[in-house]
Design a binder for these strands. Structure first.
Lengths: 169, 169
DNA sequence: TATTGTTATACTCTATAACTATA
DNA sequence: TATAGTTATAGAGTATAACAATA
């Protein structure tokens, strides 16, 4: 198999740039390439084995955690998919019989989506397979490495959230 | 700003599953949500400020590092974009005058793409802005955290590559 | 008037397979 | 025959804005 080349790091080639200043950039590029590597394989398997996409899987996962269902707006926020696109995503899943949408009588503007029994079963099957794939792809990591990585990624995420919050204000 | 909910971790809800076994899965879900969070912002800014996409930026970055240019096949491998889609990506960039494709006379099956002067200038501007965005989004991290994160991500990537290599064999 | 969700639109990406030309 | 790249096609994701129903 071909050895993949190192990711981006293009700025390191620029004149007079000190590596220390580019650590954040390198981190981002590595985050991106690592995620893309794993994501493409997961996407491929979801498609081949379940005819599903990652955003669909994500939406189902959110609903799986909430037996009461979720408003589409909340679903939109959790999946980071815009409101307009949640509709299309939900359309496909509803057409497949995996979710059901119902108008909330207390406030008829609100629509709540929840898993059908079929959707729950389908998701559990997918989630189990998915878990196995990840175990396979992350097989070489030991527990300590995983813990450290988890903690560092939490920091990265918090930093980004905080920066985005400052922008959104 | 709204506090985002924790990512997936749906299996933790399943009965009888021990957290220790799910560390890999949690790591992947966090990797995915963290990347998505940053990626959406980067994509948005690339689009708004430069009318560019991330795959386009990535392609330009690869060429920037190779003044001699790259074969489309090599470009395909480095950007993790399939051969057929590299053509369309290159079409748009060539139409914008950012890259140029030339047939290699030594082997007329081969096409080499390289940045035009305009492409080089455009990329440098974009890369500089991009670097600033990342610095902003990663502002809360200190140097040690970054180094550790870089190292752990390298492990993750190596593990995935190694697993994919086993699959590809 | 503000909010929730839908519709409409446009573009890009992603994946696969068939095809052309060159070797 | 094999390789490099293109073309064709289909489907989905992504983003924006306008819109309808409801509050």
């Amino acid at each position: 198999m071909n050895e993949l080349p190192p990711a981006g790091d293009f700025e390191l080639l620029a004149r007079g740039v000190r590596p220390r200043q580019n650590a954040r950039l390198r981190l981002w590029l590595r985050l991106l390439s690592t995620t893309k590597l794993v994501m493409q394989e997961i996407r491929r398997r979801l498609r081949v084995e379940f005819d599903a996409t990652l955003p669909q899987f994500d939406l189902l996962a959110q609903l799986y955690r909430e037996p009461e269902g979720l408003r589409l707006g909340e679903l939109s926020r959790r999946t980071m998919v815009t409101n307009g696109n949640i509709t299309g995503l939900a359309d496909r899943l509803e057409a497949d019989g995996l979710i059901r949408r119902e108008t909330l009588e207390a406030d008829r503007r609100v629509t709540v989506a929840r898993l059908t029994r079929k959707g729950r079963d389908a998701f559990m099957t997918m989630a189990k397979a998915h878990e196995g794939w990840i175990r396979e792809l992350m097989a070489d990591l030991n527990d300590d490495e995983i813990d450290v990585a988890l903690a560092r990624l939490a920091s990265v995420k918090n930093s980004a959230r905080s920066a985005l919050g400052r922008i959104g204000e």
